[in-house]
Design a protein around this nucleic acid. Structure first.
Lengths: 143, 143
DNA sequence: TTATTATTGCAATTGAAACTCAATAACAAT
DNA sequence: ATTGTTATTGAGTTTCAATTGCAATAATAA
């Protein structure tokens, strides 16, 4: 699940936008869907290098906006001076808790957000396409 | 409301932490509480310069973590490659909607978040001290 | 197969944030 | 008040994520 369809969806997206389907882009998408972990540009680049896929960082930086626009990945948080991502397609929806003590990230699910989105849409007449919810605090280990 | 107490609270925070109360820090806090708008380091720096308060960017960068730690300001969103802040104290709690079309930010209030925080705290035994909720989509003008 | 045009990799550039360090200023102890 | 100690300041420098220019290359259409 996720992995192969993700690539298909990205191909569709590229075609629809009149962009080209290149081996580099294909390799990047494939790697993004290998794990469910959060990733940043640097670790993605290194993961590819370790597999002898030498793709330049510039290409990764150029592909990420396309992946976001196509809905395959999303930004999740800005930490250590740079952005972190995760793939959206094939990943159950969840939010993030960030421990201010040990810096660990815990994923959790909840359903209230849908209500919030709907309430907001109705109140303002806007179209809500997504959200980002982050909780902060201290985990049990750090308390 | 907000403005003068904010400075008092920051003084308390500095004392409690054994840090010094300097005119630069005082000027920065004062300026932060002048408006309710979002701000970033650069605009804060320019606002101070326009008032002939020549405080270095370095000092602003060094003061911001203190203001966050003291609960006076918080990060609100990362945009245009850098962080944006707003003052928390003296500001009614609200979340942000970001229009993907015209890029405007709309503040809105809701109460569900408290429930989410409590549910999460109970489920995990963690202490939740704050949150960041952002909705994305298209405003009426852009639809 | 050829022509057109997007994409690639490299290198240079930008910009935010952090750091260096000498000079300065706050506070405590005299 | 004066001195010693130590945090803070500002200017400049450094770091590093992210972007961009450019020549070479490769993907699609004709």
């Amino acid at each position: 699940m996720g992995k192969t369809e993700g690539i298909g969806l990205f191909r569709d997206y590229l075609n629809q936008k009149g962009l080209r389907n290149t081996p580099e882009r294909e390799t990047i998408v494939r790697e993004v869907f290998v794990t469910h972990d959060h990733f940043d540009v640097d670790t993605l680049y290194l993961r590819l290098r370790n597999k002898k896929k030498n793709i330049s960082k510039a290409s990764i930086y150029r592909t990420i906006p396309l992946l976001i626009d196509s809905g395959l990945i999303k930004e999740v948080f800005f930490e250590d001076g740079h952005m972190h991502y995760e793939h959206e397609y094939g990943n159950d929806h969840h939010c993030h808790f960030r421990c201010l003590g040990c810096k660990k990230i815990i994923e959790f699910k909840q359903d209230f957000i849908e209500d919030i989105q709907e309430t907001f849409s109705k109140d303002y007449g806007f179209e809500v396409t997504g959200h980002k919810l982050e909780l902060f605090g201290y985990c049990r280990d750090c308390l």
